[in-house]
Amino acid sequence: MNHQVSHSAQNEDVPHSENARRQFFLKVAGAGAGLALAPSLLLQQVAHAKTADQAVSKEVRWGMLIDTSKCAQGCDDCVKACSEGNGLTGHGRPETDVQWVRKVTVKDKQTGKVTSLPLMCQHCEHPPCVDVCPTGASFKRDNGIVLVDKHICIGCRYCMMACPYKARSFVHEVVEDQKAHAPRGKGTVESCTFCVHKLDQGEQPVCATACGEDAMLFGDLNDPDSALSKRLQQVSSTQLRADMELNPGVRYQGL
């Protein structure tokens, strides 16, 4: 299943892009004051980075390529980083504790090949969770990430029934002392947000930066010059349950 990224209208010459680039550098330069940001934390697509007051744009579609050959069985750095970064505290009850990203190890029934990989919200282009949500709390942002607007989520869990990847969790218990940038509380559904609070400010999701093997390549699927798109052009990659034609934004290499 070799998937080619479709290139939608390109935005090389969008008027604000030069301005945005300048502002972005300003912001990076100014972010000093003890907050030394390693360049690798920042997104490569400077032209697409938005400033805080800009709305997200349709020209971007965030996605990720996971190189399973680099993903070690037994390593869960990404899972730990996610829990830490988003304040996902467990209660030692695996059946009801939330998990935004999980490690799964699979074995091919024919060849016996064992593959280990992280599995999270696949940020589909046609997300079933969005279709079924009665209040519209489940929605897809213009830039392709699928989120829950917890302000109007009533906790009916229909989206969890609909998700083919079991990517969503219901918050079964009272939450205290949340991370300031990741509000979450009892009675609503949630899932991986691609660390939207970071993304909106031009940083990468924490799992991608935490992965010591660089197995998670994050970027803009719509930008043919992004490292992600270039890699997708070279290697063969798989979408999970491609038969459902949901066109997920997360792709797997070597599966």
Binding site: P94, R102, K103, V104, T105, V106, K107, D108, Q110, S116
Partner: peptide
Amino acid sequence: IFPGKEVIESSFFD
């Protein structure tokens, strides 16, 4: 989730 494959390890009851 993984047609043709068998899940041998998962922390989420896959």
